[in-house]
């Protein structure tokens, strides 16, 4: 038995469904009853019950593209702040592609503290810190652009179904946008007004992610902004 309609607001501990259901993301099962773990929107997929959270921290997942900031330099690599409870490790061999000799090379000359990188998580198993690579298309050091923060749980909403939302954003503003799964978004654009418009649209998505019909609202917002 379902206690809620689809896409309704629920709080932690609220009873979502009873009986023959499967507990999906952000829910837990006890005595054949499914409860929510988080404040979010409940949804059903056949027998699966899950909650789309409204806020939360980023937990690394292998294959995720993230935007990180170098926070520390060690002997054989860097520590990267990826806006998560766990800092990512970027090893020097991954960056230079050859053996590293402390005599000839200097780590800080390649990447210094505070620099921004786009990386991909290559390994993470909760008992060890995640490892990062910056080798690959679209990855690497960032030297230009604007970084905007978004609650990591709302990244899927920013991308939209099959990238529908982010494509609208790119098309209407003419900016290049890189979305890190950790809630950091890089905006590259020549026209500062259009960059500002993109930032405003992202803030709007953050605020209204839980209300249906968002894509249309963003579309009309961007069109109105362009007309100014």
């Amino acid at each position: 038995m379902r206690m809620f309609e689809r896409r309704q607001l629920v709080t932690p501990g609220e009873l979502l469904a009873e009986g023959d259901y499967i507990a999906g993301e952000n829910t837990y099962k006890e005595d054949n009853k499914i409860y929510s773990q988080k404040l979010g929107l409940v949804d059903f997929d056949d027998k699966k019950v899950f909650v789309v959270p409204l806020r939360g921290k980023y937990i690394p997942k292998v294959g995720d593209v993230v935007i990180g900031q170098i926070s520390d330099v060690s002997l054989n690599g860097w520590s990267v702040d990826i806006n998560s409870p766990y800092k990512a490790i970027l090893s020097v061999s991954d960056v230079t592609g050859k053996a590293f000799s402390p005599k000839l090379d200097s780590l800080t000359k390649i990447l210094g503290i505070g620099e921004i990188v786009i990386g991909k998580i290559t390994a993470f198993d909760r008992s060890r810190d995640p490892t990062l690579t910056i080798k690959g298309s679209g990855l690497g050091r960032v030297s230009d652009g604007l970084i905007v923060n978004l609650t990591p749980t709302k990244v899927p909403r920013l991308i939209g179904r099959k990238g529908s939302m982010i494509n609208i954003l790119k098309r209407e503003t003419g900016c290049e946008i890189v979305v890190g799964q950790n809630g950091r978004i890089l905006i590259l654009g020549k026209n500062p007004k259009k960059v500002e418009l993109a930032v405003k649209a992202i803030k709007m998505i953050e605020e209204q992610a839980h209300i249906s019909g968002l894509t249309d609202r963003i579309k009309s917002f961007l069109r109105a902004g362009r007309g100014e």
Binding site: T11, P12, G13, N26, Y28, Y35, Q37, K38, L39, P53, L54, R55, G56, K57, T151, T153
Partner: peptide
């Protein structure tokens, strides 16, 4: 705690 999005069994 709920506002921070930390998973909770209940309030």
């Amino acid at each position: 705690l709920a506002d921070a999005g930390i998973p909770l069994r209940d309030l």
